[in-house]
């Protein structure tokens, strides 16, 4: 019944990946998540069930390759691509980008080759037909020039689900082909004021938390969403269900009363 923020301690949900109930308890009713820009960049989860997102680069092309999740124990398992976000102070756009692409073992992005100026791709998750991710990725410089380590790509991602959509844009750095933490990142992560991502979807949060559970504990704030309408709605729905069962007993006792009256009058 309160809107007080609480610190999401991933350590409290150690079994959250295998214990669906814990995970659901954690993700429901989340209004928004606040985290530090630049914090989300890891491309794998701690238990290695999600493989790295690869961004491979040759002399004249860049290949994005999606990941498999090789598990059968989950009802909903997002595959995601996380791009690192940068601080304004360092000259690169700030913000967090996380893209939930799909589920289970389906490969959703496979060798999208950016040869020309632009890659535009709409990806529909197979399990959630009402959600989509639109990814625009294009060269910032002259597209005819060869791709090297200085090449930067601009991205624009729009993640849509029923009732919410999130758009991100920024610049892809070449650091992204290395998903390791660096001292530099950890340092500026602590110096930056939190940004708020509103309207975050639970499975997006799932991805964020999942990827960040090594360091997330002291950096992420999740605000629980407990609008009174939800409670009132729950009350009504439960009352309705309780009433239905009662209606059956009414019918039986009314029939009993009617039969009794009939016997007495005849």
């Amino acid at each position: 019944m309160n809107n007080k923020p609480f610190n999401a301690k991933i350590s409290d949900y150690k079994n959250w990946y295998t214990d669906q109930k814990s995970r659901c308890d954690f993700f429901n009713d989340i209004e928004r998540i606040e985290t530090s820009p630049g914090g989300i960049f890891c491309g794998y989860d701690s238990d290695k069930k999600v493989s790295n997102i690869e961004i491979k680069e040759t002399k004249d092309e860049v290949i994005l390759r999606g990941s498999y999740i090789n598990t059968n124990e989950e009802t909903i398992v997002p595959v995601f691509i996380i791009f690192k976000a940068y601080n304004n102070d360092t000259g690169v756009k700030s913000g967090n980008l996380s893209v939930v692409f799909g589920t289970e073992t389906q490969l959703l992005i496979d060798e999208k080759i950016i040869k020309d100026r632009e890659l535009h791709s709409t990806i529909y998750s197979p399990l959630f037909s009402d959600r989509s991710v639109v990814l625009d990725l294009y060269r910032e410089d002259d597209p005819s020039s060869p791709v090297d380590r200085t090449t930067k790509f601009k991205y624009h991602v729009k993640y849509s689900a029923v009732g919410s959509s999130i758009e991100f844009s920024g610049v892809l750095s070449r650091d992204l082909d290395n998903f390791e933490y660096t001292d530099e990142l950890i340092k500026w992560k602590k110096d930056i004021k939190p940004v708020t991502i509103k309207g975050i979807n639970s499975d997006m949060l799932y991805a964020i938390c999942k990827l960040n559970n090594k360091w997330l504990d002291d950096n992420i704030t999740v605000k629980k969403n407990y609008p009174w309408l939800s409670y009132f709605g729950g009350l009504l729905a439960n009352a309705g269900c309780a009433g239905i069962v009662g209606a059956g007993s009414f019918l039986c006792s009314a029939a009993y009363g009617a039969i009794n009256t009939y016997i007495q009058t005849h």
Partner: peptide
């Protein structure tokens, strides 16, 4: 109750 948003009926609920 469902329309008012009983937890669990929202689209984004996990």
């Amino acid at each position: 109750g469902i329309i008012l948003g009983f937890p669990g009926y929202r689209k984004s609920d996990f």
